[in-house]
Amino acid sequence: MAETKRKRRETEANNISDYAIYLENVCKTFSDGVPALSDINLKVKHGEFVFIVGVSGAGKSTLIKLLLRELKADSGTIYVNGFNLMNIKHGRIPKFRRTLGVVFQDFRLLKDRNVYENVAFAQRVAQKSEREIRRNVPGILSLVGLAGKYKAKPKQLAGGEQQRVALARALVNQPKLLLADEPTGNLDLFNTAEIMRLLETVNENGTTVVVVTHNDKLVNDMKKRVVTIKQGMIVSDDENGGYFDED
C-alpha cells in the first residue's frame, strides 16, 4: 500500500516536472465573495507558446497573479517551474520569481533609472556579479534592439521601446517561463508585431511563453495554442486555435 502511494507520488512528481505550468482544480474567490476562477485545469509543457484569451473580467489577470504567486488560490494544485505555489513559504517566493520573466501592459519600468539600470536590476536581484551584468545586459539589449539607447530614461522612449526594455528585463536572467500580461495592449500595430516577433524568438530559444491577451487579430495570426477563459472557467483549449473578441 505504502509502496503504491510512493510510486504514485513519484509518477505525479515526474509528471509535474514535465510542465512549466501545472494547474489542477484551481479555484479563487475574491474577499467580497465573487468567484474569480472556478475549477481551472491547465497544463503547459516546457517550451510551449500559449495564448490565454478572454474578455475583460474573464479572470485572465487573476490567473496571471496566481501564476506569479501574487495571489494564493483557495483550493487546487498549482505548480510553476516545479515550485508548489500552494505551499511555498514567503521567503522562497523571490527565488521562484527569478525563474520567471514577466511583462505587463503598462511596462512597469523603474522610471528614475535608465534602460541599462532597469535591465541590470533584475540581474542584481539575482545576485549576479558586476562582471556578469556588464556582459549580459548589453547582449540582451542588442536582442531587443535597444543597445544604442541604454542611457535613456523610460520617459524618453516610445511605448514600443519601453515594452522592449521590459522584455529585456524579463529575459536577462534566462527564465524558463515568460508570462506576458497584455504585452501589446498599449502598442500600435508595428510595435505589436515587433514584440510578438521577439516573443516567438524567445520561445524558439526554449523559453515557455504564456501571453494573456484579448487581441483576436494577434492570436489568430500566430496560430498557437489558445486557452479561452470565460466567467472564470476554461471553456476551450485548442492547438492552433483562434479567438473572436466579444468585447
Partner: peptide, 16 residues
C-alpha cells in the same frame, strides 16, 4: 509603492 512592487516582481527579496 510601484517601485517596490516592480522589485518584488523581478524576484527581489524583502531585505533587498
Amino acid at each position: 509603492k510601484e517601485e517596490i512592487t516592480i522589485m518584488k516582481y523581478v524576484g527581489a527579496t524583502d531585505f533587498f
